[in-house]
């Protein structure tokens, strides 16, 4: 049986497509990098798709705004509507937000934004490692079903990663629609309570948000850069840091692999 195919969409300015494809392949899936203008036909034959990180269209207007209006996104929206899994990482998350696929409360309208980082005493880009945990109810998502319960360390690297909603949007409102996907937390899994555990000032410590169906996930941290254990910094705290120091092997899955392995199971390619 051939391995289920996942499309990784390459926009002009995408720059994480190769490692994203590699992470999918490591999970037993078949990944194909597809150019944005190669047509919807190629994408619609895939079982899932990933919008990788980068700076699509130079972040013109707003990060993700131009890519969201490209014809290829109609095919992505069709995929999402049919319940197939769609993941946006970093700039890919910005594109999903700008296209209205997440939070997707009223399909087609833009109901969230990824705003400039709000960090005390500093502006611009910030990179580092953060801990996230799966929000309650979010394991319904094909991307998160097999993610472990505790704190998951993932690297982040962005200048605009703060999830924002219309003024007055309450956490209850989000929860009732199944929006929270991943939450920034401290290394013991307890709530982030602001910087640095929440590295960008994101509303409600949101690191990733889902559509109501749970099949579309937009997240700012980069699971593909933590797909293997060796990618974890050797001095990182928490249980994953301990595993990293105890094993130097280069073939052990890392904390970010959970997303791709969840997808593989969902698509019936799990080992």
């Amino acid at each position: 049986m051939s391995r289920p195919g996942v499309a990784v969409i390459q926009f002009p300015g995408s720059n994480c497509e190769r490692e994203t494809a590699r992470a999918l392949e490591s999970a037993g899936l078949s990944a194909t990098i597809i150019r944005w203008n190669e047509g919807a036909r190629l994408i619609s034959s895939c079982h899932a798709c990933v919008l990788p990180g980068g700076f699509s269209f130079q972040d013109r207007i707003r990060a993700g705004a131009v890519a969201a209006k490209e014809p290829v996104m109609e095919a992505v929206a069709a995929m999402a509507d049919s319940g197939r899994p769609v993941l946006g990482i970093c700039n890919g998350a910005q594109i999903l937000v700008e296209s209205g696929l997440v939070p997707g409360w009223a399909p087609g309208s833009v109901e969230a934004a990824l705003a400039a980082n709000d960090i005390p005493g500093r502006s611009g880009y910030l990179s580092g490692w953060a801990f996230v945990r799966v929000a309650e109810g979010a394991s319904r998502s094909p991307w998160l079903a097999e993610a472990p319960g505790g704190a998951i360390p993932l690297p982040f690297a962005h200048a605009e990663g703060r999830f924002e909603f219309a003024q007055g949007t309450s956490l209850d409102h989000l929860i009732s629609r199944g929006t929270p996907g991943l939450l920034y937390c401290r290394r013991d899994g307890s709530p982030a309570l602001g910087f640095p555990a929440n590295p960008n000032g994101s509303s409600f410590s949101l690191a990733g948000i889902l559509n109501p169906g749970g099949n579309v996930l937009a997240m700012m941290p980069h699971p593909e850069r933590a797909a293997m254990l060796w990618q974890v910094p050797p001095a990182l705290g928490g249980s994953w840091g301990g595993l990293r120091r105890a094993s130097r092997r280069l073939d052990v899955p890392g904390p970010g692999a959970a997303l791709f392995l969840s997808l593989a199971t969902f698509l019936g390619a799990g080992s």
Partner: peptide, 13 residues
Amino acid sequence: FSYYDCEVQGIAL
């Protein structure tokens, strides 16, 4: 260093 993306390409050990 925190301004730099040191992990893109997923090859940083």
